[in-house]
Amino acid sequence: MKPFAYVRAGSVEEATDAFAARPGARYLGGGTNLVDLMKLGVETPAALIDVTRLPLDGVEELPDGGLRVGATVRNSDLAAHPVVRDRYPALSQALLAGASGQLRNAATTGGNLLQRTRCPYFQDVTKPCNKREPGTGCGALEGVHRDHAVLGHSERCIATHPSDMAVALAALDARVELRGPEGARSVPAADFHRLPGTRPEKDTEIHPGELITSVLLPAATGGLPSRYRKARDRASYAFALASVAAVLHCGNGVVERVGLAFGGLAHRPWRARRAEDALIGAAPTAAAFEHAVDLELAAAEPLRDNAYKVPLARRLALDVLGRLAPAAQL
């Protein structure tokens, strides 16, 4: 690991100022991914700005019924939070489906969103990777890519985003709140991560120097039935081969609100807008769910060794939607 300066920030302003003053700086949250990438030589920051002691460790119930989650709230604490468990169950379930107890105790909300892909070519500095080193090519395209993307990938990059939490946030219409040199702004969680296109080195829409300060869960999806389901190679402690988060509200015999997102299939949590559009106003029947999910997955372009992900994701989505729907109509 290369030497680096260390700064412990006491306020958001101190953190963003320290970042601006030190070229090559990185914000440090729980470090469960960043420190690992530093050991691997993938990340070589000149300075770490430790943001774990910022006053962003609270979960606040808002007057409008929403919930603001501070960026340094640990994944384990967020998963156990009574309001999250009660009103946004898909988020709690997604967090608990990820990593291990030890890692969830360290990992933060902001850091979870900014974790990098676990593509083995990205993590191995001896291999070509356009995400790590633009222009060197993609080792996975013709290499080992059973775990890689089937939706929205490009010639340059076929990596998937590893977060479970982010998939639930996308389905729940959460927003990511940011503070940077140009002030505060917020971005829908479903648009926070990017598709690779010609610039796979850019994972998210975050601007240089911006810090995630919180995640906002809207009142509109609070208290609605929601679920997360994940398929992986072993029963626990593995990344998703495919996963699904969904929130579904039915009234007057039809779907009135639906949020559906896939994990493990793309460079970002894949919000299934086509499926949602097909479901709004339709009766929540098994046939309607099949039609909608098939519409969405028609866009899939599997690679040589990962075609299994399409039927896997289909079955996961149908299971989750079926469990969320009023039993009488299935």
Binding site: Y6, T32, K39, D50, Q102
Partner: peptide, 29 residues
Amino acid sequence: CDHGQCGACTVLVDGRRVNSCLLLAVTLD
């Protein structure tokens, strides 16, 4: 493993179990 994948390095920090291989000591003042 030294990469947070095996748990052999687990210790308790402020009563919570964590992977000590991924925690920079300087952050733990």
